[in-house]
């Protein structure tokens, strides 16, 4: 058996099965080979469907399925943990001419990948303001929790995501959006980052104090609402004091 020939035939629709594969009567394997081909393509397309529910909703299931088949033949998984499968989807969509009229799709894929990454990220005790005096809090040097994921988009990526996942969410308006995904316990939640939010998140590297990071944020974004940023970062489990493993 030649594994290269076998796997090439698996990913090539309608290709004849490799030589040397038979049914019990010694005839060419025919449809029997298709069982493996169907298992591979259907299970990988299913994995992409599970991983990108909002893309499925935006494109419709039939169109997404076609896209998934093209994608999985171009980019079969490289990891056996399928929870990671689809990392190439945003880049694939960016270069996929038939969907060029929908340039926000790639960032929706990035957001969905970020939510998955957050879901499987390491646990860490969140930094909360409870029981801490404000001055002592400012002297701490937290870092982003492992489950905190940032995304900056030229499109209203979170508004589109919400419009397709939350009943009654308002219609998206054109405009760039920055998003921070956090995981208070087990369920990731995306938040819209207000002005200065990305700057603050990027400044909190585990060595800078919270006070210094806020000063740097104000220097970069003078209209940032510091109180609102603190409420968001400390109320959503975005930060931790625990060491990197």
């Amino acid at each position: 058996m030649d594994a290269h020939e076998f796997t090439t035939a698996l990913l090539t629709p309608d290709a004849a099965p490799p030589e040397g594969l038979t049914d019990p009567a010694g005839r060419p394997a025919g449809r029997r080979f298709d069982v493996y081909r169907n298992n591979v393509t259907a299970s990988l397309a299913d994995a992409l469907e599970t991983g990108f529910p909002v893309l499925v909703k935006l494109l419709g299931q039939a169109t997404f399925r076609q896209l998934a088949l093209i994608h999985l033949r171009a980019h079969p998984p490289t990891s056996r943990a399928l929870s990671q499968y689809g990392a190439e989807m945003p880049g694939f969509l960016d270069g996929f001419a038939p969907l060029a009229a929908y340039p926000y799709l790639a960032d929706i894929a990035r957001l969905e990948l970020g939510i998955r990454r957050s879901y499987h990220a390491a646990d860490a005790a969140p930094l909360t303001p409870e029981g801490r005096d404000p001055e002592a809090l400012m002297a701490l040097s937290p870092r982003l929790a492992p489950a905190t994921v940032l995304l900056s988009s030229a499109h209203p990526v979170l508004s589109i995501w919400r419009y397709n996942t939350e009943p009654g969410a308002p219609k998206p308006q054109a405009g760039a959006e920055a998003v921070m995904i956090t995981r208070p316990q087990f369920d990731p939640a995306p938040h819209l980052l207000p002005q200065g939010g990305l700057e603050l998140a990027r400044a909190l590297d585990g060595t800078t104090t919270l006070g210094a990071a806020l000063e740097a944020t104000l220097a970069a974004a003078p209209r940032a609402d510091i109180a609102a940023l603190m409420t968001l970062f400390l109320g959503s489990a975005a930060l931790t004091l625990s060491e990197r493993p």
Binding site: H4, L10, P76, T78, R80
Partner: peptide, 14 residues
Amino acid sequence: WSTHGGAYFNDLLP
């Protein structure tokens, strides 16, 4: 088997 050339095929191949 389920892998070849760095790709994972997510099936139990014979």
